[in-house]
């Protein structure tokens, strides 16, 4: 029984690899069904995550721990949006659709926009042209930043084409090699999981 989950991983992994090479429509249908099942399991994993979030915040509120009022905000919003979304749906025109437009979308984009300040200030402190490599990184980043805004074109009309060239030539070369490295790494990790060498996802060494 202890090795049962490892057998399940092997069976599903090997089946999915085999299905890829079978050009029969039944094989493709089976793959679609299995992927649909995986989506269902993923949804339950999300439910588990939300439960976990709920329990953590509920404990804080019950104990009146530091910042419990904020935890109450999370609890109420989580419960309200989940219940409304399950009962009414999430499409445009529903309450959740309105909440998404009024709360979720603006908060998400503002949070990400804040990163502009933090990335820029961190870069200002960390970027130093100590050697050739660091200088290349620094100069490329500056050219990219200037070349992507109107003032860059105003200063020198060569900036926009230069940024395009940086993206299309040296950036492409490096990204292509990195993509192959990532691909090889992902395949070897997947194979190690399928054959049971890597068991860390089960909390085992």
């Amino acid at each position: 029984m202890r090795n049962g989950p490892l057998f399940v991983t092997f069976l599903t992994g090997a089946t999915l690899i085999a299905i890829f090479f079978i050009p029969h429509h039944r094989a493709q249908e089976t793959q679609s069904v299995i992927l649909e099942w995986a989506d269902v399991v993923y949804t339950f994993a999300l439910i588990l995550g939300s439960f976990s979030l709920w329990i953590a915040n509920q404990t804080k509120v019950a104990r009146r721990g530091e910042g419990w009022g904020y935890s109450l905000v999370t609890l109420v919003s989580l419960t309200l949006v989940t219940v409304l979304g399950v009962v009414q749906g999430v499409s445009a025109g529903t309450a959740v659709g309105w909440i998404y437009n009024a709360i979720n979308a603006p908060l998400a984009s503002t949070m990400f926009s804040l990163l502009a300040f933090f990335i820029a200030s961190a870069a200002f402190r960390a970027f130093r042209a100590r050697n050739v490599e660091a200088s290349l990184l620094l100069v490329t980043a500056i050219v990219m930043m200037i070349g992507r805004v109107s003032i860059g074109e105003f200063l020198w009309e060569g900036f926009p084409p230069l940024t395009e060239w940086l993206l299309d030539v040296p950036n492409l070369a490096a990204k292509r090699a990195v993509a192959i490295g990532v691909g090889l790494g992902a395949i070897s990790t997947a194979l190690k999981i399928i054959v049971g060498i890597d068991r860390s996802y089960l909390g085992r060494s």
Binding site: L46, S50, T79, L80, T82, G89, I103, N104
Partner: peptide, 20 residues
């Protein structure tokens, strides 16, 4: 905290409506 609650609830509701 509002963002965390709303995002988690929204994701859950979307998965319920689209998958479950």
């Amino acid at each position: 905290h509002l963002f965390v609650g709303v995002s988690a609830g929204y994701l859950l509701a979307v998965q319920y409506q689209n998958v479950l």
